[in-house]
Design a protein around this nucleic acid. Structure first.
Lengths: 341, 341
DNA sequence: TTGTAAGCGTTATCAC
DNA sequence: GTGATAACGCTTACAA
């Protein structure tokens, strides 16, 4: 392995001068600089990042912990985080927590042990009762859900407002008996589903529609499969409904499938809206209405907050809520997307 | 920052003993071990990974370079690679190359500079003419396409065979005028599209169907949007066809959309098959037939080869081809998927 | 079973 | 403008 000393020796200078050239520091004579660069090139030298990291006390690497990178929403989020990281010269190590509380805590604990300068944690398993566990002496940004008024920076979605807007959109399009598909949540526990359900209730109330608990369906995983099963179950039970609000687009994909299987026309008989506005939603048939939480904004803000926190830790924790928009498509009777316009 | 020396001092032992405890080495008296562990716990010590990396000459981190992590296929691949890496105590840094040849070469060059023990490169932009550039002195595994008979380990898809099987499947279901949607490729250049087109031609030939170049459509990006546009263009031109073979499922998603927009019945009027068998294909309406290249096998094999290559570099380069299966669904008149069975 | 010494490759400091 | 020295925190080799 070629080291900085080899270069120094071959170029007839000191290691320090080589280092100065490598780090583009001023006060290096042009002739020296060129000689060193030429030698570096000739001997095919590469800096040893481990040594540099040790000396500098920075790894220029951040962790990104998501439940599963192969779910469309987290894929899009990761893409944006990696891109923003690259812009700031930060490598991104992706960890998968499988949406369990334990592995999220684990990611948090391990990241200090590991090589990261900081961690972006897309938490879905952690609840507000875990708030104190976040009081870590390590740069962390929580991403995604408005779960914590914790001691740590937080980029949140407007879950309540976005969901209320989605349900209002259904109501405006004529739905009155609206099914909500969530995962399980306990009364006061703050979670994605509890927040989105709060938005659902708020929209119903605002339009004078009574809340009917039998229309709220629980699934145990945010997958299309569970969405399709939930719909099949409702239809088998003979439940009447004319709208469906799904906790995520991925679940909505299965809901559309389940409705199609049963010969239910969307949006004629039932209107459907999701949350996240992932890429495929624009193309499925019928195209899926959704709430767009501005992934790029969230990713950029998260990386920015983390980078700042890495620089200095003397700032109060902030919470930034991403803007959202409701995107109406065919599944709520919206305009047809066409490849030709 | 608490170091191994602080622990040693506080526990009244030498740094070496602490290190031995940390690395679970034998020949440490139980009493000593416990005293050290207690001190580590009390002072909240964490190993400095940068120092360990420097000393050991290993980072336990590998790079994974994919075009875009938010495309379903690469998301699934990355998920499997990260999972397999975790099993072997390897962190995975994800880089996005945006499918350009330059950034793929760049990932290759940078990985030596960086902190990785090795690199898994999901190459789509590199061609066989770049083969010599892969002759790097660094553990690399190429993943995905059978582009190189190069000097480097390679986990490939059965592109030709898989595509031929897909097209044969269309033919068996009654298609005769089969559109193929690819991206641009030059005569002999080996690329995803050229290989999959070779499979297309092989299947036609095997069934005595003449190859009609006007049925082969080029798109410039593997996105649903381009797929939908391509179909819209064909229909506008009055082109007659009864089958579509798409280079990827993601493109096929747009093709289904384009056909639906034009009121073409799938599979009644036109049958459609994709490649990759990504997660959403099972749920779209109609569900999408595809070629499943066993993502898990590919990811596991790639990590395994890379891990072995990191251990010792004295093995010949191998090429391993992933098994594949054709999955028939509604888009080729196959069985209807239902959430209830 | 435990400790000592040396060094991994880089860079901060300060002297020249 | 350049270089000697020491140190970042850990582990290998060897001595006790």
């Amino acid at each position: 392995m070629v080291t900085i000393r080899d270069i120094a020796q071959a170029a007839g200078v000191s290691p320090m001068t080589v280092s100065n050239v490598l780090n583009k520091r001023p006060h290096v004579a042009e002739a020296t600089r060129e000689k060193v660069l030429e030698t570096i090139d000739r001997l095919d030298y590469r800096v040893n990042v481990a040594a540099r990291n040790l000396r500098r006390g920075r790894t220029h690497t951040i962790g990104l912990a998501v439940p599963e990178i192969d779910r469309p929403y987290f894929g899009q989020l990761a893409a944006a985080v990696i891109e923003e990281g690259a812009r700031r010269d930060l490598n991104v190590v992706v960890e998968q927590t499988g949406r369990s509380r334990e592995s999220e805590l684990n990611a948090l604990a391990a990241s200090r042990v590991r090589m990261y300068d900081g961690l972006i944690l897309s938490a879905v398993g952690l609840g507000s009762s875990d708030r104190d566990l976040l009081r870590v002496d390590f740069p962390v940004v929580i991403l995604g859900e408005r779960i914590f008024q914790g001691p740590v920076d937080h980029v949140a979605m407007a879950n309540v407002e976005g969901s209320a807007a989605a349900v209002s959109h259904l109501i405006a399009r004529g739905s009155r008996r609206i099914v909500a598909i969530h995962d399980h949540f306990e009364g006061d526990e703050v979670s994605v589903s509890s927040l989105r359900n709060a938005g659902y209730r708020r929209a119903l109330a605002a339009h004078g529609i009574a809340y009917d608990p039998s229309l709220v369906v629980e699934i145990d995983e945010f997958t299309p499969e569970r969405g399709a099963e939930a719909i099949a179950r409702l239809l088998t039970q003979g439940m009447r409904f004319d709208g469906v609000f799904c906790v995520t687009d991925y679940v909505a994909l299965g809901v559309l499938r389940g409705l199609a299987d049963a010969g239910v026309d969307v949006p004629g008989d039932v209107k459907v809206i999701g949350f996240d506005d992932v890429e495929f939603s624009k193309y499925v048939v019928p195209s899926l209405s959704s709430v767009n939480p501005d992934h790029a904004f969230m990713a950029q803000t998260a990386v920015e907050l983390l980078a700042a926190r890495i620089e200095s830790n003397d700032r109060e924790a902030v919470e930034i809520v991403s803007p959202y928009t409701v995107v109406g498509r065919e599944s709520t009777g919206g305009r047809v997307w066409s490849p030709l316009n």
